[in-house]
Structure formats: C-alpha cells, structure tokens
C-alpha cells in the first residue's frame, strides 16, 4: 500500500483515495460533432501505460478533492503530485 501526498491534506494511505484512471482526457466540448469512432476513443480507449502514467486520484476519504499524480505503474512509485488545472510536470 503506497502513500499518496494529497496536495491539500498531505501524505496519506492509498486506501483513503479513489483512483480515477488516466489523466488529461478532456471531455469533448462538442460531442455531437464527433464520429462514433472519435466518441469511443474518448469514452473507452486508454493508454493503460506500463511505466510513467499521469493519472487522476480523488481523496475520497479525506477532502474529496481530485488531483493528478504521476506514478510509475510498473512499481507504484509516485513521482509527482499536482492540482487539477496545473501544468503537468515533465518527467
């Protein structure tokens, strides 16, 4: 069980958080303009990266805030944490 540093509350057990999958998949502004293929890309298709992944977490048993985490999914090592809307770090 890894530790996640919530940008609002500090370091906490992973079990206090809920994972939200791949980050920076923006909801299309004009969904009706998209083809079924393009919509499926948004809805279902994921990079599912082995290695450095930018992902979303929610401090569901804490402040309930969503934020971003950079984690190496091959060993669960967390590289960086940043708030929603902040520029992703270069890693």
């Amino acid at each position: 069980m890894f530790l996640i540093t919530c940008p609002f509350c500090g370091e906490r057990e992973q079990s206090e958080f809920k994972a939200g999958g791949e980050a920076h998949i923006e909801r299309p502004k004009q969904p009706t303009e998209l083809s079924d293929d393009e919509w499926a890309e948004y809805l279902f298709m994921r990079k599912n990266i082995k290695g450095i992944q930018f992902e979303r977490w929610n401090h569901s048993h804490g402040c309930r805030k969503w934020f971003n985490v950079v984690r190496d999914t091959s060993n669960d090592e967390i590289k960086s944490v940043y708030k929603m809307g902040e520029k992703p770090p270069t890693i």
Binding site: K18, E26, K65, W66, G85
Partner: peptide, 13 residues
C-alpha cells in the same frame, strides 16, 4: 455525489 464532484472539479471548474 462522487460523479458530480468529479465533473465539477475536473471538467467544469
């Protein structure tokens, strides 16, 4: 509640 919060915080801040 979780879903609404998600949209509010991440898609529609």
């Amino acid at each position: 509640l979780g879903k609404l919060e998600d949209y509010l915080q991440t898609e529609w801040p």
